[in-house]
């Protein structure tokens, strides 16, 4: 029994989730606390991966990060990072598709911390960074955590976009969902059942944890 798909899935999803939370937190904060021109457009762009078909998303990524694009060339020649047909490509796919699932609850959680509390902190002599670390984040962390869990789950289940950019290379980029598809295609139902069982158990756990933590206490 080859457990490589499980390993690569965990590796890709965890890496993607870390990036999602880091990038998503900044985006969510800006969306929640700042007014700027074109905010609704930015919102639409961030939320795109929720509605766009994953294969289309994967195609965009392939075009954006492929060898023929300047971004792909810069990454490959300048930084030595190859995305297409590598696990890093799978990370990008998982990151982009899970971003809205984090940003949406995170933004709501940050907005939920009333501006009056933050103003009170500022008036008590605190800098913006102190306000964020001592008031905003501690009061919003449940929503942020729930969002991160959802993002992680989405990253784990990523299929279409991953297939487009990272391909289906056993032992290299073949993640769990793709391995399940492969196993079914090959008539290997024993493997498919096992992998499906793992994913199902995982999904239940994730929703349970997210549910427990998203309950607002304050």
């Amino acid at each position: 029994m080859d457990l490589f798909p499980l390993y690569i899935t965990v590796k890709v999803s965890l890496t993607a989730t870390v990036i999602t939370v880091a990038v998503g937190l900044v985006l969510a904060w800006v969306m929640a606390k700042r007014e700027f021109f074109g905010k609704s457009i930015v919102d639409v762009v961030i939320m795109q991966p929720l509605v766009i078909p994953p294969t289309v998303l994967g195609y965009y990524l392939l075009v954006a990060f492929g060898k023929s694009s300047w971004l792909g060339q810069f990454l490959s020649d300048g930084l030595g990072i190859e995305l297409v047909f590598t696990w890093k490509g799978a990370v990008i796919a998982a990151f982009i598709s899970s971003l809205p699932l984090f940003v949406k609850p995170a933004r709501a959680a940050l907005e939920g911390v009333g501006s009056e509390l933050e103003d009170a902190a500022r008036l008590l002599g605190k800098t913006e960074l102190q306000v964020i670390t001592t008031i905003t984040l501690p009061l919003a962390w449940r929503g942020l955590f729930a969002g991160a869990v959802m993002a992680f789950a989405r990253a784990t289940g990523e299929f279409g976009a991953t297939l487009m950019i990272a391909g289906n290379i056993p032992g290299l980029t073949q993640t769990l969902p793709i391995a399940i598809y492969d196993a079914v295609q090959a008539g290997d139902y024993a493997t498919a059942n096992l992998l499906v069982g793992i994913i199902t158990l995982f999904s239940f756990t994730v929703l349970f944890i997210a549910g427990r933590f998203s309950r607002v206490r304050f």
């Binding site: 009333g114 009056e116 509390l117 103003d119 009170a120 902190a121 500022r122 008036l123 008590l124 002599g125 605190k126 800098t127 001592t134 008031i135 501690p138 009061l139 304050f218």
Partner: peptide, 28 residues
């Protein structure tokens, strides 16, 4: 705001819900 040294008591007090009474008082 942080440099004004102006005390502003809000109508509904805006106490920090994740801090105790003494933590709230000590905050500033």
């Amino acid at each position: 705001m942080r440099m004004r040294k102006v005390g502003h008591l809000f109508q509904d007090y805006a106490l920090f819900p994740h801090m105790t009474v003494s933590e709230n008082i000590a905050y500033g």
